[in-house]
Design a protein around this nucleic acid. Structure first.
Length: 600
RNA sequence: GGGGGCGUGGUGUAGCGGUUAACAUGCGGCCCUGUCAAGGCCGAGAUCGCCGGUUCGAAUCCGGUCGUCCCCGCCA
């Protein structure tokens, strides 16, 4: 028996993968290795679906051909790892399986080798049944064998591979930055790592390589990128993990539009390559100002794929006759509404559910005006309105029979938040969007700083290295709230998937910003002295962007949370259920680090 | 830190005050020579997450606790 195992870097156990065999290979002797996906023992003839990463192929044994093979095969069960040597042959007439790429052929076994048996797995690998996530995470190595996870991991690889290829072609250098670096107290909570050689001192894991990539611009690298792991010790959500991956990009001698154009081109090409079946909602991607995003969608990461936009009716409120509306305006608030098209016949109970929903976000209530499909009106507040005001309201919101008009009157933040969230809640309830559509948009012209009422100071809305718009710089002193930052966010289907800015590259301006946000110069020098020093040595104008790879993969894989696109994610309480991390350590390890644990 | 949902054979579910705790699938055995979610027959497998309470009686009601998921806070 002579088998062709010649290709360099191949696998000694295989001449072919399970997925690649087809009618062309008929007559060839092959060696395959993989997992038993399923056994069909018909008493005489036996079939095994043999699976590897590349596909499934049916292998057959017949006692008339070889009694010995048939005996070797008898004990084999699902998920055993076996090697099969045999001959590819065309399946008999009418026995083709059109669901399988290898369905025209099968492999007649001449030898079978058990490489490793398997105990019965805790859940079925060969079936797409829902299994509790806890179990999936505990046995993640088995979960990853299933098609859903395998496809997600493959998609993620393709995404990252495309990004690397693209950026390499555009003259970017991939540069690694330290995982052990310095704490950044003004961001999220840091993960910290004790230093053994410097007792009492700690490294911090990077929340992002922000400072380091700017240093690389000072260093003259001009175009940098990294698929960077980032760490933030905050509570989890479906789209947040304690460690996550971002595509980190920084460029010298660029303006805002250069960075935005690069990312738009990159992701447009990426979608065409990895999800050609998806349709982009609007191209070139629309650009919304921060204010426009809030006014129309109630959030700075809007889902632009459907209507139900927010309409302002604040001007009608004072004279409306409805006290709640009028008082809100009196107190400096806003009144806005959305037209939930097509649910004018919602029951009182259903409307109450929506009211409960917005209350989560601080709204005092939800005023409604239902225009039933029979042309009648039901309303919580219309009785207070003159018919002129009511007509104007309906006109403003483009209300027609069958619509439900919903209003929130409150402080601006509350109005935006509650209606913005309600809009997306209605999207999900009413299935308003086609899942095959990708709604990219840019949000620009963010305020550079926001007033922090609790701490009585200005906080950067992006981060403290973001450059103000040059034309706004002279307002820094008189009215910081009016200063826009050279910042841009990329939003996809209502998720922020990238954010960046043009940076400050001048030590004077950087010191001014430190002053504005109330950072004492001594403290600033201690924390960011290395940056100020670097900026005094010839720093090019520069800017960049960071994009959440996990979220991007999640959206391109049509998954509901980022755990589904991470091989070994952590659960809600930041625990790894497979390895059971975090765990306690030996007392000796703590001693070495000069650490005493004090558990209350 | 707060609010909500869910914990029933290995897996997924049903049962919601008195059942022999049901069904599907998986698992084990037997039969079966063209299956591909193979089929048929038989069988094993659950003190209903844990603790306490109410009740003549609790998987079922109540309280607590643990685990897990979703949301708020948090996430420059």
């Amino acid at each position: 028996m002579v088998l062709d195992f010649v290709f360099v870097g191949g696998w000694m156990y295989k001449t072919h993968t399970c997925g690649e065999l087809n009618i062309e290979h008929v007559g060839q002797e092959v060696s395959l290795a993989g997992w038993v996906d399923r056994v069909r023992d018909l008493g005489g003839v036996s079939f095994i679906d043999l699976r590897d990463r590349f596909g499934i192929v049916q292998v057959v044994s017949n006692p008339e051909t070889s009694q010995e093979v048939h005996q070797d095969l008898a004990p084999v069960r699902n998920e055993w790892v076996i090697q099969v040597i045999g001959t590819v042959r065309k399946r008999p007439e009418g026995m083709t399986n059109t669901d399988l790429s290898t369905g025209e052929i099968e492999v007649e076994i001449s030898r079978i080798e058990v490489l490793n048996p398997s105990v019965t797995p805790p859940f079925q690998i060969n079936q797409e049944e829902d299994v509790e996530e806890q179990t999936r995470l505990k046995y993640r190595y088995l979960d990853l064998r299933r098609p859903r996870m395998r496809n997600n991991i493959i998609l993620r690889h393709k995404i990252v591979a495309f990004i690397r290829r693209y950026l390499d072609q555009k003259d970017f250098l991939e540069i690694e930055t330290p995982i052990l670096f310095k704490t950044t107290p003004e961001g999220a909570r840091d993960y910290i790592v004790p230093s053994r050689v410097h007792p009492g001192q700690f490294y911090a894991l990077p929340q992002s390589p922000q400072q380091l990539k700017q240093m690389l611009m000072v260093a003259g690298m001009e175009r940098y990128f990294q698929i960077a792991r980032c760490f933030r010790d905050e509570d989890q959500r479906g789209d947040r993990q304690p460690e996550f991956t971002q595509l980190d990009i920084e460029m010298s001698f660029v303006e805002r539009d250069d960075v935005m154009a690069l990312l738009e081109d990159l992701y447009t090409g990426l979608v065409a390559e990895v999800r050609a079946d998806k349709r982009v909602f609007e191209a070139p991607w629309p650009r919304l100002t921060y204010q426009e995003a809030l006014d129309r969608f109630g959030k700075d990461n809007p889902d632009i794929r459907f209507g139900f936009e927010l309409k302002d009716i604040s001007d009608l409120a004072p004279e409306s006759g409805f006290r709640v509306f009028a008082d809100t305006i009196e107190k400096g608030g806003l009144v806005k509404g959305i037209n939930a098209k097509g649910i004018g016949d919602y029951s009182r109970k259903q409307i109450d559910e929506l009211t409960e929903y917005v209350k989560q976000f601080g709204a005092g209530g939800l005023a409604y005006l239902a225009l039933t499909s029979e042309g009648e009106e039901r309303s919580s507040f219309a009785k207070f309105l003159s018919s002129e005001v009511k007509e104007e309201l309906i006109k403003r919101l483009d209300g027609t029979p069958g619509d439900l008009l919903l209003f929130v009157a409150d402080a601006p933040e509350v109005v935006y938040e509650s209606l913005g969230r309600l809009r997306e809640e209605l999207r999900d309830r009413l299935e308003l969007v086609d899942k095959g559509v990708l709604g990219f948009c840019w949000v620009i012209d963010f305020p550079l700083v926001n007033w922090n009422a609790d701490e009585k100071r200005w906080d950067p809305s992006h981060h403290l290295f973001t450059s103000p718009m040059f034309e706004d710089i002279d307002m820094l002193e008189e009215d910081p709230s009016k200063v826009r930052g050279q910042q841009y966010d990329l939003v996809l289907n209502g998720y922020e998937i990238a954010g960046g800015s043009i940076r400050i590259h001048n030590a004077d301006l950087q010191e001014k910003i430190f002053g504005l946000i109330g950072l004492d110069m001594d403290v600033a020098r201690e924390r960011f002295g290395h940056m100020l020093r670097a900026f005094s040595y010839g720093t090019p104008p520069h800017g960049g962007i960071a994009s959440g790879i996990d979220r991007l993969c999640m959206l391109l894989a049509d998954e509901p949370n980022i755990r589904e696109v991470i091989a070994f994610p952590k659960n809600q309480s930041a625990r790894d259920l497979m390895g059971n991390a975090p765990s306690s350590v030996e007392p000796g390890q703590l001693e070495e680090l000069h650490i005493k644990v004090d558990l209350e």
